[in-house]
Amino acid sequence: MPSTEAKALVRVAVGVVCDDEHRILIARRAEQRHQGGLWEFPGGKIEEGETLAQALVRELHEELGIDVAPERCEPLMTIEHDYGDKAVRLEVCWVRQFQGVPTGKEGQPLRWIDVADLNDYAFPKANDAIVEAIQGA
């Protein structure tokens, strides 16, 4: 009999970080993490009491070492996806202005890629709609 217990929805702040050449920053997930080995748009879990912008500013600083003003986080979309073992709500923002040079502070490889090349990278299934939105922008 299927379980009727509802999974907790994990809220995740996601940044579509762009540079002056309109390239997008992607990071490769560590192998041991959920959806490990796939590429992703930087971000992380929204903590209790944080707004989307606060979480994104914190996560981008922790993961990439860049500073973003909260008012520079422009909402793009929200996606809910159930992986079976985990359900997520991705709250996605454009980040077109930041200070600093992004580096993989957690050892994760980073790449700046052209929008046209997004389909050449394997992303978690929940990211498909983000890729489509970026390509349509």
Rank of each mutant, 00 (worst) to 15 (best):
T51E: 07
V57R: 11
V88C: 00
A27F: 06
R28E: 08
A122R: 11
C18K: 08
K86D: 12
A133Q: 06
L60E: 00
Q108R: 15
I46N: 02
E47C: 01
M1W: 05
V131Q: 02
P124K: 14
P75I: 15
I24N: 02
L76D: 03
N127A: 07
G65F: 12
R33G: 11
G15L: 03
G37Y: 02
V131K: 07
A27V: 03
Q32N: 11
I66W: 05
H34P: 13
P75W: 14
V12P: 00
G107S: 12
E40F: 02
A27M: 12
R96T: 08
L118S: 04
G100V: 04
C18N: 06
N119I: 12
P102E: 00
I24K: 08
Y121E: 00
D67F: 07
G36L: 08
A8H: 01
G136I: 00
V68P: 03
M1I: 14
D120F: 09
H81M: 03
R58G: 07
E74T: 15
I26R: 05
Q108D: 00
T103M: 09
P70A: 03
A53N: 02
W94K: 09
E71G: 06
I26M: 01
E63S: 12
G107R: 13
P109Q: 09
A69S: 05
L110G: 00
L9F: 04
D117S: 14
H22L: 01
W39T: 05
R96V: 12
D114C: 09
